[in-house]
């Protein structure tokens, strides 16, 4: 009875001792199981990569009315979106196909290249689960490279801002579209009232003073 009790305690101690390296080094024994690249990749990438007080922050799907829709063309779930492009090579400039895509604040003012955000080939579609551009981890893998502390909310900033007054923007980014026309009509409204008002005033003032002989 006594002997088995001791054995029980010793085996328990050994188990605890064995768990110490396992806990501190992230289950080293278990990870040797990984045999394929895909599996290792998924272990690394399935995290959103952003933690707040040790709790993983997942992107919230909540959207406010007027939020931008996905403004880019649906690129699908493919790991390489350019797989069907003929003669695709690193020598082709991105902008020779993606015309006007370089007209954005990041490229023009931040002076950064397409590849600094979109990465090297193969470029995965934003819906590809393991893509850095996938919205579940974009903030951590793309934005946070420069913007320290970028959150999923921060990553909803539309880098390739559509032309605000464009008819297509009405569905892709309604708030931008309506803000644009609100401000445009405000500016036009102010000048439509005050420009003729000023001109007529100026003429009247001139004539009135002329009559007075001033």
């Amino acid at each position: 009875m006594n002997g088995s009790h001791l054995m029980h305690n010793v085996s328990r101690l050994l188990l605890v001792l064995a768990m110490i390296p396992a806990c501190t080094s992230g289950w080293v024994f278990a990870s040797t199981d990984v045999t394929t690249d895909a599996r290792r990749y998924s272990l690394q990438e399935s995290s959103s990569g952003y933690y707040e007080d040790d709790i993983e922050v997942m992107p919230h799907k909540r959207t406010l009315p007027g939020s931008p829709a996905n403004t880019t063309k649906r690129t699908g779930r493919y790991a390489d979106v350019h797989r069907l492009v003929k003669d695709y090579s690193g020598k082709i400039r991105c902008t020779s196909c993606h015309v006007n895509k370089a007209d954005n604040l990041h490229t023009v003012r931040g002076n950064i290249t397409c590849r600094q955000c979109h990465g090297l080939d193969p470029i995965a579609g934003a819906d590809f689960y393991y893509a850095p551009m996938n919205s579940i981890r974009k903030h951590a893998y793309v934005c946070a490279k420069c913007h320290q502390g970028a959150t999923p909310s921060f990553a909803t900033f539309v880098v390739h801002t559509p032309a605000a007054g464009d008819a297509k923007t009405r569905s892709s980014f309604p708030t931008l579209y309506y803000s644009h026309y609100l401000m445009l009509f405000l500016i036009i409204g102010v000048f439509v009232v005050f420009l003729p008002h000023s001109i007529l005033w100026w003429i009247r003032d001139w004539l009135m003073n002329k009559r007075r002989g001033k």
Partner: peptide, 11 residues
């Protein structure tokens, strides 16, 4: 972006 969605910066 902690209080408002990031796209409000576009606006």
């Amino acid at each position: 972006s902690r209080f408002l969605p990031g796209w409000t910066l576009n606006i």
